[in-house]
Amino acid sequence: MSGLDNLYREVIMEHYKNPRNKGLVENENYKTFRIKNPSCGDDITIQSFVIDGIIKDCRQEGHGCSISMASASVLTEMMIGKTVEEALEVAENYLNMVSNKQYNETMDLEEAEVFSGVRQFPARVKCASIAWVAFKDTLK
């Protein structure tokens, strides 16, 4: 069961049980993007609030498996305070990491590093990606 333990790391469980920045706000300055995965039933909405190129707030809401919920939580915590450019670069690198593509291993992915175990589970890549893809779309 070592592979599974690599997937369900402590940090992931901690975020799954205590999700950060959960709940959407009704404010037209927030950009909102929702993604539903019709095959697994994941449904995630991400909001971001940008002033002068800096992400001031990032929110998440939805339901899904532990990996999708935890990755949404980690995402929001990491992105607040970053510039839009930094955020996009980190998100791109993270998405490459979880989908087992070439990625910049020297870049600090902070807590999101724990999702590297997803690479061994190709069927779960979508779970780890959904919130991050939605996040990128809020910055478009």
């Binding site: 697994c40 039933g41 498996c65 532990s66 990996i67 589970f121 069927a123």
Partner: peptide, 9 residues
């Protein structure tokens, strides 16, 4: 246990 966590097991 969400179905997609269980299915991986």
């Amino acid at each position: 246990v969400p179905a997609h966590d269980a299915i991986t097991f």
